[in-house]
Structure formats: C-alpha cells, structure tokens
C-alpha cells in the first residue's frame, strides 16, 4: 500500500494538471453551450496554439508564460475569423453541419501542421522549468504551480466576464433563447463568433501554460481533447461549473490511477469515473435536463 504522503502528493499533482484541463474544457463547454455543437477542431487548434507558443519562444526567446496574452488574443482572433469565414458560412444555420465543418477543420489543420512543421516532437526549454517548490510532503514543479494559478485566475476572469458584462449576458441569452435574443437586437451571428473566439482564446492560454512542461507535435491535441470531452460530459454539457469541477476530478483521477495501478493500467481511471458519474447523474454533475 502507498503511504498517505505519496497519495497526497499525487492528489496535488492531479489538481495541478487538472487546472489546465479545466481551461481546455471551459472553452469546449462554452462553445457547446452557445452553438450546441461539439467543436471537433478543439484538439487541433490547441496543437496549433502550442506551435505558436513554441515558435514565438524559438524566434524571439519570449517565455511562453509571458507570451500568454499574445497567444490568447491570437486564438480569439483566429476563432472569430474561423467562425465568420468558414464555420458559420458553411453550416448555413444548421447545427449538424457545424459539427462536420469542425471535424473537417481538425483534419485539415492537423495535416497542414504535419506538412509544415514535420512530425518531430518539440519542446520549449525555460531555465526555471526544472525548479521545484516544496509544498507539504510534495515537491512540485514551479511551472505547474504557476500554470495552476494562472489557469484558475483566467477561469475566474472569464466566469466574471460572462456573468457581468453585456457581451457575456448576450452570450448567455443566445445560448438558451436565440429567437428572444434576436428580438432584443442581439447580433446572434456575431455572438456565435465571439463565443467561438473565446473558446479558442482559452486554448491559446492553455497552450502557453502547457508547453514548458510538455511537448508539441501535430498529434498533441488528441490526448487533451479526449480528456476535455470527458470533462465536459461528466461535468454537464455546457456547464461552466461542471467543466471546473470535472477538470479537477479527471486530473486527480488520472494522477491517482497512475500511482495505484501503474502508468498504463492507470489510464482506466478516467473512463471508470466517467461511467460511474453518468450512471448516477445521467446529465452530468451540473447538467440540467433539457
């Protein structure tokens, strides 16, 4: 049996990783909540953002954590333009078309990345990435602590923005009542594009937080997007709080699963808790029955 100290360290580690999952999942759940589609391009856009952070670092030496505002803003712009010029235009107002368009986008982006950047894995080396901080019984990588705090701060800021600002209210209005939103003069198409942009901005931020302790290759998005789907569904589709709690649940499950069952068998933890939660709460932790 493992000592309590190791379990505690594993839990903390899971929470730290979970914060990044939260950021990826919040973007996915926001897009789902407003557009009512799963954004299949989520993983490949995350990968693209990681390349952006990588190339920014390699060409200018800028620390990925400092490049975060830039990459997030770039993500917003890319998402907004993608929605306006590709997704919205090709879908012609049908939700099921949006689904296929985002799937097509994922394939195109991934292969374009393979073509232009090659299949090698690339890493960013920042001097402080190897530093650790002692927290209770655990030695935690500084990079993960910083990314944890940053991810939570960003989620809080986004939550506040959506709760309080007029644009945030418009987003929530469009999510639940498109016709009503049109009749108070909300530009529904622009709101779709803004929501998609915010979702991709979250990926930009997540990419910058990930890259110092991870690597990027054209397939990097896969691992995260599958986890993000799991989080969004078990938290409750479209629920902000669900993505938050779900991200931590999955992060801790993954970390403890690895500790208790070993790296490869430990992967079973996530699907196991996923099935368990859906058995007890079919709409997810914070999902509302539609």
């Amino acid at each position: 049996m493992l000592s309590p100290d190791i379990l505690l360290a594993g839990t903390i580690n899971g929470l730290l990783t979970g914060a990044i999952y939260v950021l990826v999942a919040v973007g996915l759940t926001l897009i789902y909540g407003v557009l009512h589609i799963i954004n299949f391009a989520h993983g490949s856009l995350l990968m693209l953002a990681m390349y952006a952070a990588f190339f920014l670092w390699r060409s200018t030496g800028i620390d990925p954590y400092l490049a975060l505002p830039l990459v997030a803003a770039g993500g917003f712009a890319l998402g907004y333009v993608l929605y306006r010029c590709v997704i919205g235009r090709l879908s012609r107002g049908k939700d099921e078309n949006i689904l296929l368009v985002t799937l097509g986008l994922a394939i195109v982006i991934e292969n374009a990345a393979l073509f232009f950047f090659g299949g090698d894995t690339r890493t960013v080396e920042v001097s402080w990435a190897a530093e650790t901080v002692e927290v209770g019984p655990a030695f935690l990588p500084l990079a993960k602590l910083v990314s944890f705090a940053a991810a939570l701060a960003l989620c809080a800021a986004l939550g506040l923005y959506i709760a309080r600002s007029d644009t945030g209210k418009a987003i929530r209005a469009v999510a639940r009542e498109r016709q009503g939103a049109r009749l108070v003069g909300i530009d529904v198409e622009a709101t779709f594009a803004i929501s998609y942009g915010i979702g991709i901005a979250c990926l930009g931020a997540a990419a910058c937080l990930l890259i110092p302790s991870f690597y990027v290759a054209p397939t990097s998005g896969h691992a995260f997007v599958l986890v993000a789907f799991t989080i969004v569904v078990l938290g409750g589709m479209g629920s902000f709080l669900g993505a938050l709690v779900g991200g931590f649940v999955v992060g801790v499950t993954e970390s403890l699963g690895g500790l208790l069952l070993g790296e490869s068998l430990g992967q079973i933890g996530i699907p196991l808790i996923f099935i368990l939660i859906l058995l007890l709460r079919p709409a997810g932790l914070f999902g509302s029955r539609a």
Binding site: D166, A173, R176, E177, S288
Partner: peptide
C-alpha cells in the same frame, strides 16, 4: 421567449441591449 436561466433583472437589462 424570455431568457430562462437568467434573472428577471438580467432579462430586463438585455431589453436595452440595442
């Protein structure tokens, strides 16, 4: 066509969106 998961106040505020 009110916004079901928003408060009465927020619904009214959105009336002056445009």
């Amino acid at each position: 066509r009110v916004f079901p998961d928003m408060s009465v106040r927020e619904n009214l505020e959105l009336g002056s969106y445009r």
